[in-house]
Design a protein around this nucleic acid. Sequence first.
RNA 1: GUGGAUGUAGCUCAGCUGGCAGAGCACCAGGUUGUGGCCCUGGGGGUCGCGGGUUCAAGUCCCGUCAUUCACCCCA
Length: 427
Amino acid sequence: MQLKAPRGTSDTLPPDTAKWAYVEGVMREVSRRFNYEEIRTPTFEHLELFARTVGETTDIVEKEMYSFKDKTGRDLALRPEGTAPVARAFLEHGMASGALPKKFFYMGPMFRYEKPQAGRYREHRQFGVEVLGSPSPYSDVEVIVLAMDLADELGLTGTELYLNSIGCPSCRADYKAKLIAYLQPKKEGLCEDCKSRLERNPLRVLDCKQESCRCAIVGAPSMLDGLCTDCRIHWDEMRRILTSLGIEFQVDNALVRGLDYYTRTVFELKWPPLGAQNTLVGGGRYDGLIAELGGPAIPGVGFGMGIERILLATEKGSKPILAGGAVDVFVVGLKGADDRVSQDTFGLVRKIRKSGLVCEFDPLQRSMKAQMKQADRMNAKFVAIIGDDEIAQGVVAVRSMAESWQKTVAASDVVRVLREGVLNCGK
RNA sequence: GUGGAUGUAGCUCAGCUGGCAGAGCACCAGGUUGUGGCCCUGGGGGUCGCGGGUUCAAGUCCCGUCAUUCACCCCA
C-alpha cells in the first residue's frame, strides 16, 4: 500500500497554500494594528509544562497528548496548545520584570490525539494572542475585539460570542463546594463520566450533554451568583465595556473551558454554519498561570483560533478567498534552426522577471500551439513570442491574451512595453 | 473512545441479481509544419483502500483492517 499522511494530518497544496498565506497575512495585519508582536516557541516542550498548567485531570493531558521520552529519558510532549509555552518563554526571558503589559501573537501547529472529523485534526494550526500583565477588563475586551475584527475581515459575518466567568481560585473553591453539595444527593442520576467528574472536576458536570445530567443541574447554583466581589466587578465591567461598544454577546453559564488555568473570563466565538466543530475561537483569562510556573503574580488573557476552521468557514462565508495569481507574461520561444532561439527566450524571461513582472516559459519547448495553450491556462496577460523571424529582425511579438491584439516591438523596447501593458491591465 | 455512511483513473462519479475495468473533467498529441479559448480525432494513465475467505470466476458476496466523513464526546 502507498504511504499516506498519518491520520488526522493533511497536506496543504496549491492553490490552497495561497489561501493560507492570505489568511495568515490578515492575521498578521490585524495583530499589527492592535500592536501585538509575534512570538515563536518550540513545537515540543517538557511534558510537565502542560501537566501543570493545562491540568492533570483534563482530557487534553489525560488522553490527547503526543508525549514521548527522548534518548536521555526526558519527558516531552508535542504542544497541544499555545498559551502555556508563551507563558513559559515570557518568564524564562525575564520579561516579567520588563514593561507591562506585553502583547503577543503566535501562529503554528498544535497536536492532539483525537478522533479526526471535519474541523478537528490531530495536527492543526492555530493563531492566538496573549496579553501578559494586564488585570484590566479592557484587555479582555481587546482580545475579544481582535478576534471579532479578524472574523469580520475574513467575511465571517454572524459569529456568536459566548461569555462566562468562572471566578478566581477562592470563589471557585466555594462554588465547587456548593455545587458538590447540590449534586451529591443526585449522584445516582448522573452519567458514569459525571460521577467521576463530581470528585475531580465538578464544573465539567455543568456542560455534560447527557439528558440525565442536564436534568440534574437544573436549579443548581450558578457560578455567576457565587463570584467574589473582585470577580464580580471584573465581570460587570467587561460586560459594560462590550455593551458600550455595541458588541452583542450571550452569557452561557455552562461555558467551562477544558483547560485548568482559566480564571474569571472565558469566551468562545462560534460560527454556526460550520457544523459540529463550530467554535472558531476559544479563550479567556488566566491570572494564575505565570505564578503556577514559578513566576510573580502576573495576570494574562488571550485566545486561540483554529486556522483550518477559519479556512473551512471562509469557503462558506460571504467573502470566499480567491486563490492563484495570474502570470503577467508568458514568453513563447519557438524552436529554430539553431539554439539561438532558446537562448534569447531565456534571456528575455530573465529580463522581464528582473523588471518585477511574473513571467513564465516552457522549458520543454513544445509546439507554439501547446505553449499558447499553457499561457492561456496560466491566465497570462501577455505573450511575448520569439522565433527565427523575430531574431532576424531584432523584434519580439507581443500579444494581449485578453484583447487578442498583437504587435511587433523592438527587442530593446519589449520590457518597457510589457510593463506598461500589465499596468494598464489593472485599470 | 462510541455509533452510522463511504472508499473504483489526478478530480467527480457509474458499474443492475458475481462473468474481459467505464464515463465526464483534467493531462498529452494531431486536425492548423508560427498563434490560446470553441469544436473534432486519437492517446497515456487503475495492484477497484489493504489483507483474508467463499466461488470455475469477486470491483460486486462474507470477515477483518486502514482511511475519509457525519453525529456523540471533546475542542481550535
